[in-house]
Simulated scan of single mutants.
Amino acid sequence: MARTWHPSARIAALGIAAAFVAVAAPTVNAQIPGNNPRTTVYPVDSTKVQLDVEPVDLEAGTVRIVVQNNTASNLNCTGIGGGPAATVTTAEVVARSIDYFTQYPLSELADLTLNLPTQAGGAQQISLGSAQVQAGSAAEFLNPEWDALNQNDAALEQARLAGHYGVVGTTISIQANQAFEQTVRLDHPSSGERADFQTGVFMTCTVDGQRYAFHAYEGGAKPNYGTNDSTGSLGSAGLGS
Rank of each mutant, 00 (worst) to 15 (best):
20 F>A: 14
142 L>D: 03
231 T>Q: 14
24 A>M: 15
62 T>L: 06
119 Q>C: 04
117 P>T: 06
172 I>K: 07
71 T>Q: 02
82 G>W: 08
235 G>L: 13
99 D>Y: 07
87 T>F: 02
193 E>N: 12
188 H>K: 15
204 T>V: 11
17 A>K: 15
53 V>W: 03
142 L>W: 02
2 A>M: 11
191 S>R: 02
239 L>D: 06
217 Y>V: 03
208 D>Y: 00
64 R>S: 11
227 T>Y: 11
37 P>I: 05
90 T>Y: 05
78 T>K: 13
87 T>C: 05
182 Q>W: 08
123 A>F: 13
38 R>G: 14
159 A>Y: 01
150 N>K: 12
9 A>V: 12
137 S>K: 04
152 N>L: 13
192 G>D: 00
8 S>F: 05
97 S>P: 00
57 D>S: 08
35 N>F: 13
66 V>N: 03
42 Y>N: 02
153 D>P: 03
120 A>R: 15
153 D>G: 13
118 T>F: 05
46 S>T: 14
33 P>C: 10
168 V>T: 01
190 S>C: 01
231 T>Y: 08
206 T>C: 08
92 E>K: 10
27 T>C: 10
141 F>Q: 11
220 G>V: 06
85 A>H: 12
22 A>W: 10
1 M>F: 09
226 G>A: 15
173 S>V: 10
134 Q>E: 14
46 S>V: 04
109 L>N: 12
144 P>H: 07
138 A>G: 13
153 D>H: 14
113 T>Q: 11
110 A>G: 12
235 G>N: 14
184 V>W: 00
29 N>S: 08
98 I>N: 00
103 Q>I: 01
186 L>G: 03
69 N>Q: 09
212 Y>K: 03
1 M>I: 09
87 T>M: 09
70 N>T: 03
103 Q>G: 01
6 H>Y: 15
129 G>P: 12
129 G>Y: 14
101 F>T: 04
124 Q>C: 08
41 V>M: 03
134 Q>I: 12
16 I>W: 10
135 A>Q: 09
161 L>T: 13
177 N>E: 12
200 G>S: 01
11 I>W: 14
159 A>P: 07
230 S>A: 15
200 G>C: 02
219 G>S: 01
169 G>P: 08
68 Q>V: 02
143 N>M: 07
28 V>T: 10
166 G>S: 10
189 P>M: 08
94 V>K: 02
230 S>M: 11
96 R>A: 02
230 S>E: 11
94 V>A: 02
158 Q>T: 15
54 E>P: 03
94 V>I: 10
71 T>L: 06
136 G>Y: 08
54 E>W: 06
191 S>K: 10
100 Y>C: 08
61 G>V: 00
66 V>Y: 00
72 A>P: 07
186 L>K: 05
159 A>D: 04
210 Q>T: 13
190 S>R: 10
230 S>Q: 12
121 G>E: 13
44 V>C: 00
198 Q>L: 12
199 T>H: 04
76 N>V: 11
45 D>L: 05
158 Q>K: 14
